[in-house]
Design a protein around this nucleic acid. Structure first.
Lengths: 236, 236
DNA sequence: ACCTGAACACCGTTCAAGT
DNA sequence: ACCTGAACACCGTTCAAGT
């Protein structure tokens, strides 16, 4: 009957690199980075694990592709990686760009770990840094200072600052709090800080921070510091 | 014969947690973090893999122990985690402590990756941060500012700043350089920086930096920025 | 051209068993 | 008390084979 779907209708779209990369992002979003295995990724695409290797060289290549996808999202968020011709306020431009990148990272909280695992950068990452550098440069910094600035920003230029020691299960949180309690007589400053900063005791020692606030604080200290150095070298 | 060694002489010293942790550090030093597997660690200790589990809960526990060992080294380097009673120059004290921690990290280049993989902190790490916080506090900062300061420093307080994208094989280095060359007409600022900063062309694009210099630069920008904020809040 | 099955060489870990 | 052997449930990946 005509109602019967043509078998060709449900014929699978052949895989492509791009579909593999996109599926990898979705899988990591949904189930975390540890769940992103070649086997799980294949299943996500309705295919056997070994089929992937026809389209990508290996898992490393998948992760590189995933980062390119993330960078594309950042590109959309900031409307391309171009450098505004005359930069009246480089700090503000950079701040906006970086906080935009951060918004993308917050949508993909596993992405920082991938960035830190990579050893060579892809094209769009280079273009991103070109735009950051260009903004500093058009803002009046020497190449030398801008170079230092790039390094000083580090991963913060991409919108994240790897937080050390964030417990991800309530049990870990609990264990940490108990250990803290155990040695708290040796920790006058930490306990002092905690009682002043939070309204309750050190039991909440690990939930006391607002990441966004801290990110912006450190970012602003760095931008201010660089601006100060720029002025110093300009007037020298 | 009496020359025959008593079999008891070559009797194995029974394993302990501590010996496992030390062996893990040595193994990682010698062959890198990826080579640190439970099986390889057991072999290092002349024992079967499964014997380790009698002494440590699992691999996570080994890594936690490894970090405690690293922190102990830092403790030796700075002569304990105590806070100097009156701090005349908190910036200098902190700078010294942090560069001392960095010296330890440089001896164990794999250690930063372990720190970043951990989710809860051990006792000596807490004591270390207590001493950092105490120094800021005795230096005249409010708890609020010191708290922001701790976050702004982040991993830098422990002597490292995860460098993004450092190629670890000559082939990767080569591949990056080729890709860079391919798109270099789109990269006026990066090529400009490279020709000014290095004495040769962008072929050396990935070896152009002195990590120690960059680390100290960023550290000083942060310390200066915090000092400035301290003065501002003191005079308010 | 595109996908698959079976197999390999690794992991961390459990569990019952040895001394 | 301390260590072991065999086995399990995972990895990423190769390679010859299917359509």
């Amino acid at each position: 009957m005509a109602i019967e779907a043509d078998p060709k209708a449900k014929t699978r779209v052949p895989l492509t690199k791009e579909r593999v990369h996109e599926a990898a992002v979705e899988l990591a979003d949904r189930e975390g980075l540890k769940a992103l295995t070649m086997r799980a990724l294949a299943q996500e695409l309705g295919v056997e694990a070994m089929s992937l290797y026809y389209h990508v060289a290996n898992k490393e290549a998948v992760l590189d592709g995933v980062l390119e996808a993330i960078m594309a999202e950042i590109g959309e968020e900031i409307g391309g990686f171009s450098v505004p011709e005359p930069v009246d306020d480089w700090k503000a431009v950079l701040r906006d760009r970086i906080l935009a990148a951060r918004r993308v990272m917050l949508r993909h909280p596993w992405a920082p770990d991938v960035f830190e695992s990579r050893t060579n950068m892809g094209v769009s990452i280079i273009l991103y840094f070109e735009s950051i550098l260009g903004t500093m440069r058009e803002g009046g910094m020497s190449y030398d200072l801008a170079h230092h600035g790039l390094h000083a920003l580090g991963s913060r230029a991409l919108g994240f600052s790897q937080e050390l020691f964030r417990p991800d299960t309530p049990e870990q949180d609990q264990a940490s709090a108990e250990m803290f309690d155990c040695i708290k007589d040796q920790l006058p400053y930490l306990t002092g800080m905690l009682t002043e900063i939070t309204h309750d005791g050190p039991e909440e020692t690990l939930g006391w921070c607002d990441d966004q606030t801290e990110f912006e604080f450190a970012l602003d200290v760095l931008l201010e510091g660089l601006e100060r150095l720029r002025i110093a070298e300009t007037s020298a």
